[in-house]
Simulated assay, not measured.
Amino acid sequence: MSALPIWETLGTSVMGLGKKLNQDWGVAEGTGTADDPLVLAVADGHGSVSYPRSDLGARFAADLFAARGREFGALVRPGRLPRLRDYARYELPERLVRDWQTRVWEHWGRQPGPEGADAPREDVLRLYGSTLIGAVLAPGLLVAWQLGDGELTVVDEDGRVRLPLAPERAELGDETASLCMRKAWHLVRVHWEPLPEPDRAPRLVALSTDGLSKSFASDEGFTEFTAGLYERLAARGVPGIAEDVPRWLTEASRHSGDDTTLALAHRADRACGASGPDPRAAWSTAPEPAAPWGPGAGVDPVSKALDPSSGLPDPASSPPDPPLSPPDPTSRLSDPTSGLPDPASGLSDPSAGTRHDDEETERP
């Protein structure tokens, strides 16, 4: 008989209120063993008229991270961590950005828009703009990367909720860093957390797009939701909440007006059966439900393409790696209802970036 998985995963995505297209994408796969590292990713396409292909950009981002994440997880072995740390902080972010930009350019070459196949590369990348959060869990190690908004949330074995990649300074309004920015790898935040004692490893790791956190009136509300989610998971496991999560995300979307995606991994080493507190109680002080988004809703966003990395030197002295060519996925995240921070890091958190309006538009 095969051993039970160390982790159980769940991934769910719902479309924003009044939108015609979900511009989020997510991945949740693996069990966290040496042979099957756990990989989580969520990506949020910007969605306004300036980014008409951002749904594809989000899809490319999450799927390409999954491929690189599996490669990284397979390298995690005792004695390799010092080298892997440098790779995770510097090399992998650049590879991720180059992978994505190469994939976008290749897609444009096959399916150009009205601007034509010879449109300027930077203009083309902008059309697919997306954020990205990704995490890899392997025996003895948790690593996560973030570009742009959204949340990485960790619940420790004592029930404490923390957000290891929360920026030191809040981003301004709807502006966020994006994969479409030149040298975007300089803006990636990295969380490196060795886990030498398995019994003290996190119990829950969750990645979510900002459609979830924006549905609460305060950061405390979002933290309370995560605590409630963890207690439900600890009591019932993923199967016990699988039918509830899509409804919770739909409620979040009703308040934020945005697509909402959640990819989580729960360490299932406790007995399940009893019910925990309802995490939706955190919405008792949530803002009023959002009005529908879209061209007919009076939304007139002014898109900006501020690139805080434009003045930074390019550390790459060799050509980029050949692009990955993972199989093109045929489905989104499955709907369960249908079946140690690095204080020495020099990476900066941008205070300006790409406008993230999430207005629904048709792709040409």
Results as ranks from 00 to 15, higher is better:
S2P: 14
S2L: 01
A3T: 11
A3W: 05
A3N: 10
L4P: 15
P5Q: 06
I6W: 13
E8Y: 08
E8A: 12
L10D: 04
G11R: 06
T12I: 10
K19E: 06
L21T: 15
N22P: 10
G32R: 07
A34S: 13
V39W: 10
A43F: 09
D44N: 09
G47A: 09
G47Y: 08
P52C: 01
R53H: 12
S54T: 09
S54M: 04
D55W: 07
A62E: 03
D63S: 15
R68D: 13
G69I: 03
E71M: 12
G73C: 03
A74C: 08
V76L: 00
R80W: 00
L84P: 05
D86K: 10
A88Q: 06
R89F: 01
L92I: 10
L96N: 13
V97P: 15
D99H: 15
E106T: 14
Q111C: 08
E115W: 04
A119R: 13
P120D: 02
D123W: 00
V136Q: 08
A138Q: 05
A138C: 06
L141V: 04
A144S: 15
G148V: 04
G150R: 09
D156F: 05
E157I: 02
E157S: 15
L165H: 04
P167R: 07
E168C: 09
L172F: 14
G173S: 10
E175V: 00
A177N: 08
L179M: 14
R182M: 00
L195S: 11
E197W: 11
P198C: 09
P198H: 12
P198G: 12
P198D: 12
R200S: 12
A201I: 04
A201C: 07
P202I: 07
L204K: 05
L204P: 02
A206D: 02
L207I: 08
T209A: 08
G211R: 03
F216M: 03
S218A: 13
E224S: 13
E224M: 02
T226G: 04
A227Y: 02
L229Y: 08
Y230V: 00
R232F: 05
G237L: 06
V238S: 11
I241A: 08
A242R: 11
D244Y: 07
L249G: 05
A252K: 05
S253A: 08
T261D: 00
L262Y: 07
A263P: 02
A263G: 06
H266F: 14
D269V: 07
R270N: 07
A271G: 13
C272N: 13
S275I: 01
P277F: 05
D278V: 03
P279M: 02
R280A: 11
R280K: 08
P287F: 05
G294W: 04
P295C: 01
G298V: 03
D300Q: 11
P301V: 03
V302Y: 13
V302I: 10
L306Q: 00
S309F: 03
L312P: 02
L312Q: 07
P319F: 00
P320Y: 11
D321M: 11
D328H: 10
P329R: 04
T330R: 14
L333N: 07
D335Y: 12
P341D: 12
A344P: 03
S345C: 12
P350K: 03
G353P: 03
T354P: 00
E362S: 14
E362F: 10
R363V: 04
